[in-house]
Amino acid sequence: MVRRDEFVLNVELSAEPGEVIVLLGPNGAGKSTLLEVLAGVLRPDTGRISVAGVLLDDTARRLHVDKARRRVGFVVQDYLLFPHMNVVENVAFGLRARGMRREHAQSHAIAWLERMGLEGFERRKPRELSGGQAQRVALARSLIVDPRLLLLDEPLAALDAGSRPKVRAELRRHLESYPGCTIVVTHDPIEAMLLATRVVVLESGEIVQDGTPSELARHPRTEYVARLVGLNLLRGTASGTVVEVGPHAVVAVAREVSGAVYVAFPPHAVTISTDRPVGSARNVWPGRVTDVEAHGDLVRLTIDGTVPMLADVTPVAVADLGLGPGSDVWASVKASEVTVYPA
């Protein structure tokens, strides 16, 4: 646990070798702080950190392994390659710090650069590299000293949108070949889905969800995650095929459940009409449009009512129905489109 002014980070997390854990969360959730604690840059106020069976921090025993002896690799968003050293010197730095002779360290570094596809860049200065190249140099610099744990803080945030997919694919390949555990911090859900074997969602200093990327995409447990994966999320009490999500608000679901549950449905499953519909849909709620914005080739409506939700409709529908902020509408969702899972 780390306290910093008003902010408290309280996290319990264990990971297996070979796992790539993506820490996902809004700004200020404590993701970077968690990495700094793991790297030993910050000291926890209370808690224990052990990696691969080695205890790094235990406040109960007043134990703290200095950041220089933790063997935890740390790659930050802007990579922070030492600007006055060339690429080889950067990569060889960790080996030189361990007392390895210069020629020896540099030949190791050159081998790593080849592995990273950076032949010919050995004598370049960091400022002469592209973002993706700099990232690979930073990775090589961390990996060359064989860390027990690899930490990546927003590894793709500094790249322009055009080069991001290619670098992301390369990063994924490099992470797959790294035997230790990796923890990646991001606030980009696509990055999380593509890199992670496991996603941990952090909000206000607490872990709110922990699971595989597909679990996360199907069964979000917080409003933040639901927004990220593009679902409407409601919490309620189920009995039979009906879930009560608020006073006078119920959602019909396709299968029988009971107790506290989450219900989720995608915005595109919502049908909007201005008159009360008379179809097969069992879920029909009145509401008022509060916001209208473009969303891909659809239009996303924010609807306030007994059941607040987002709804994606076609631009044609918006025009035909004359929708705008303040329009009173009926929203309907088929019970078969609604996912329900225990809270």
Binding site: A39, D66, G73, L80, F93, G94, V145
Partner: peptide
């Protein structure tokens, strides 16, 4: 900090 995590 980075240099320290590299063992310097």
């Amino acid at each position: 900090d980075i240099a320290a995590t590299l063992g310097a």
